[in-house]
Computed example of a mutant assay.
Amino acid sequence: MKQAEAPPDKAWSGPTHAGVKSPAPIVMPDLARRFVVTAARLDHLAPGHPMEPWLRFVARLARAQHVVATTLAPAAALSAEDIARATEARLPPLAADGHQRSPVWRDALTRLLDHLVAPNASVGPNARMGLNAPVGADSSAIPPQGDDLPPATLALIDTLRTADPTTLETLATHFLRGHIPAADTGATVFIVAALQIYFTGSAARLSAADLRLLQERSLCPCCGSPSIAGVITASGIIPGTRYLHCSMCSTAWNHTRTVCVTCAGTRKLSLRGIEDDGGVVKAEVCAECHTYSKLLYQLHDTQLDPVADDLASFGLDLLVSEEGFARHALNPFLLTGDSEDDIG
């Protein structure tokens, strides 16, 4: 999960003529809705899905994120000067290498873990597997739904609860810098969930008017993380606009359609989809750089959610990867660890 590390050398430019309709370049996240909407969407998509146990687990995780985000509400304390300094340098104010993470994100992790093991939280009756195995490719390695979390997962949660701050900060830094040892994949699932709470809460405190799109348009203008998917709008000032959605802070930003998210090429783009899926999710593949990114179409389902629908369309990822295309940036809840290439 690489973030922006160096300032681009080109200034942002927006509409220059008064009265010309243009989509908002940046849309900040709604902390009150971000995680609960993802949970509800996963609950809707899970029944009968080949990855149903994992979708239900991530829905449970999202509900825990919602509780922590709306009660503890951890966030970075950025001054107006900090924000202005970053945007003038054409850097995202919340970039991993651009601001010092507040220790409050670790408080979010503790509260998150506490909520996951609360008596009123459930995953399924036949839980056996933990989270130490890579997830995504093999549903047999996914925790089944049940009344209790799997013993291996509970053990992992206990390990994280008692881990010292240095260990937790190292796990967070490894993820944000794009390198996750395979042995840390299970722990990183929870680290990611806590970081999403922290970064989304931090982004929600900022104003879109104080931010600028980056020259490298594939990266979030708020925190510098890659997008999880692009949503093609069905309403708004200009229906049919593409907004990329940040995988970490949930900020959305406008990105020109029919332009490769990875290399900005336009000559060899095409769409891939799965028959009879309703047309909600497509993969935009680029034959120039041999990468692809997800497109989600609100016209076909106004209730779609970037995190949930991307996760539930993993079958499309498998099909496109078999054609030799690498994904622009992975969903953080489909990590396999081991190398930077694995996680975008």
Rank of each mutant, 00 (worst) to 15 (best):
P29H: 05
P29F: 03
D97R: 12
D341P: 09
I157L: 10
L319T: 09
L295C: 05
F35G: 00
T258Y: 12
K268V: 07
L316A: 12
W12T: 04
A155R: 14
E216A: 15
A163L: 07
A39H: 02
A40D: 12
H179F: 11
A4D: 08
A84I: 02
D309H: 00
I232G: 03
G48Y: 05
E322I: 11
L296Q: 00
T291I: 10
D210R: 07
P332G: 03
D158W: 09
P93Y: 02
D310T: 00
L78M: 08
I157C: 01
E323P: 07
I26K: 04
P15N: 15
I142V: 09
G146D: 13
L176K: 06
A6K: 15
A133E: 14
D138M: 13
A234H: 06
F325T: 02
Q196T: 04
G337P: 04
V58M: 02
T159S: 14
Y198E: 05
M1S: 05
T241R: 04
A229R: 01
S235L: 06
A32Q: 15
L330F: 08
A86V: 02
V285G: 01
R257H: 09
W54A: 07
P53T: 11
H99Y: 11
A18R: 13
A6S: 10
S293G: 14
F190N: 00
P151T: 14
T87P: 01
V285K: 01
S202C: 06
T162C: 14
N120W: 13
T70R: 02
L131W: 13
D317E: 07
V36H: 13
T256K: 11
T256P: 12
A229F: 02
P165S: 07
K10L: 15
G186S: 08
L72M: 14
A283L: 02
D9R: 15
T87E: 07
L156Q: 10
C286F: 01
V58T: 05
Q298A: 09
L334D: 04
P119R: 10
S13G: 12
V68P: 00
V68I: 09
N254Q: 08
A96G: 04
A229E: 03
R90K: 08
P221Y: 06
L211Y: 02
R56T: 04
A287H: 12
E5C: 12
N254L: 07
M129Y: 10
P93Q: 03
A264N: 15
S13N: 15
L116R: 01
V68W: 00
P7R: 08
C260M: 11
R217C: 08
E52V: 06
P15Q: 14
D148P: 05
Q298Y: 03
R56D: 04
F314Q: 03
L330E: 11
H44N: 02
S313E: 05
A11R: 11
A96E: 05
S102Q: 09
T173S: 11
L206D: 01
S218Q: 14
A209H: 10
T110D: 10
P143E: 06
Q298E: 10
W12L: 05
L214C: 08
S313D: 06
R161H: 13
L304H: 01
A59I: 00
S247F: 00
L214R: 10
D43V: 02
V36W: 03
V37A: 08
L211C: 04
V192N: 01
A62N: 03
E288Q: 15
T87F: 05
A152C: 10
A46Q: 01
L154G: 13
N132P: 07
C249W: 01
T302F: 06
E88Y: 03
Q303L: 08
A127F: 04
S140C: 14
